[in-house]
Lab assay of single mutants.
Amino acid sequence: KLKCQHCNHLFATKPELLFYKGKMFLFCGKNCSDEYKKKN
């Protein structure tokens, strides 16, 4: 199981990947990825 970088939920589906500031982040979906980008 993977943990979403934004909402901290565990998920087993294909993660949404975001490469940001030289790091890779995993998200449970596009919505969390977009929210994370807005906040950072």
Rank of each mutant, 00 (worst) to 15 (best):
L18A: 11
P15F: 01
C7K: 01
M24Q: 15
S33E: 11
T13H: 10
S33H: 03
Y36M: 07
L10Y: 11
K37R: 10
N40V: 11
G29P: 01
L17E: 15
C32Y: 04
L26E: 15
K30H: 09
K23E: 15
L17N: 15
K21W: 05
F11T: 13
F11Y: 01
K37W: 07
K30V: 10
L18V: 12
K21A: 13
S33V: 09
S33M: 10
H6R: 11
Q5E: 02
E35A: 11
M24R: 15
N8Y: 02
A12N: 03
F27G: 01
G29R: 06
E35K: 08
A12R: 10
C7S: 00
K3G: 08
K30T: 06
K23Y: 03
F25C: 12
L26A: 14
Y20I: 14
L17K: 15
L18T: 08
P15S: 06
K38G: 11
K21F: 11
C4K: 01
K30E: 10
D34W: 04
L10M: 09
A12Y: 03
N8T: 09
G22D: 03
K39V: 12
K38M: 09
N40G: 07
D34E: 11
F27D: 01
M24E: 15
Y20R: 06
K37N: 15
Q5L: 06
M24L: 06
C4Y: 01
K1D: 12
Y20P: 02
Y36P: 01
K39A: 14
N8F: 04
M24A: 08
E16T: 10
K23L: 09
K39Y: 14
L26R: 15
Y36H: 12
F27V: 04
K23V: 07
L17D: 10
T13C: 03
K21S: 13
H9W: 08
T13Q: 07
L18K: 09
C7G: 02
N31C: 07
L17P: 14
K14S: 08
M24V: 04
C4D: 00
C7T: 00
N31A: 08
G22M: 06
M24S: 13
G29K: 13
P15E: 08
H9M: 14
G22E: 14
F27K: 01
L2T: 15
K23P: 02
K1H: 03
K30M: 09
L2P: 08
G29C: 07
G29W: 01
H9T: 14
K3L: 08
D34H: 06
P15G: 04
K39M: 07
K38P: 04
E35Y: 06
F19C: 05
L26T: 14
E16G: 02
H9G: 13
N40A: 12
E16C: 07
K30I: 13
K37E: 14
K21N: 11
N31H: 15
T13S: 04
N40L: 03
K30W: 05
F27N: 01
E35V: 08
C7N: 03
T13D: 05
K38W: 05
G22F: 03
A12G: 11
H6G: 10
G22R: 06
K23C: 04
Y20D: 11
F27T: 04
K38R: 12
K14C: 03
K30N: 10
D34S: 09
P15T: 05
N40S: 14
F25E: 10
L17M: 14
C4E: 00
D34N: 01
C28M: 01
A12D: 10
L18C: 06
K14G: 04
A12K: 13
C4G: 00
K1L: 02
F11A: 04
H9E: 11
K14R: 07
K30L: 09
F25S: 10
N8G: 12
A12L: 06
K37L: 05
Y36R: 02
F25Q: 11
Q5I: 04
P15L: 01
C7V: 00
C32Q: 00
E35R: 12
K1V: 02
C4M: 00
E16D: 04
E35M: 09
H6S: 08
K3C: 04
T13N: 05
E35C: 02
P15I: 02
K23F: 04
G22T: 09
K14Y: 01
Q5H: 15
G29S: 06
P15Q: 06
K21E: 13
N8A: 13
T13A: 08
K39Q: 10
Y36G: 04
K14A: 04
C32W: 00
N31D: 07
E16N: 02
K39W: 07
M24W: 09
K21Q: 11
K3H: 04
Y20A: 14
F25W: 11
L2E: 15
L26F: 04
G29M: 08
S33C: 08
K14L: 07
S33Y: 05
L26C: 13
L18I: 04
K3P: 08
S33Q: 13
M24D: 13
E16S: 05
G29E: 05
D34T: 05
K37P: 06
K14P: 04
L17A: 13
P15N: 06
C32A: 00
K39L: 06
K38Q: 09
H6A: 10
K1T: 07
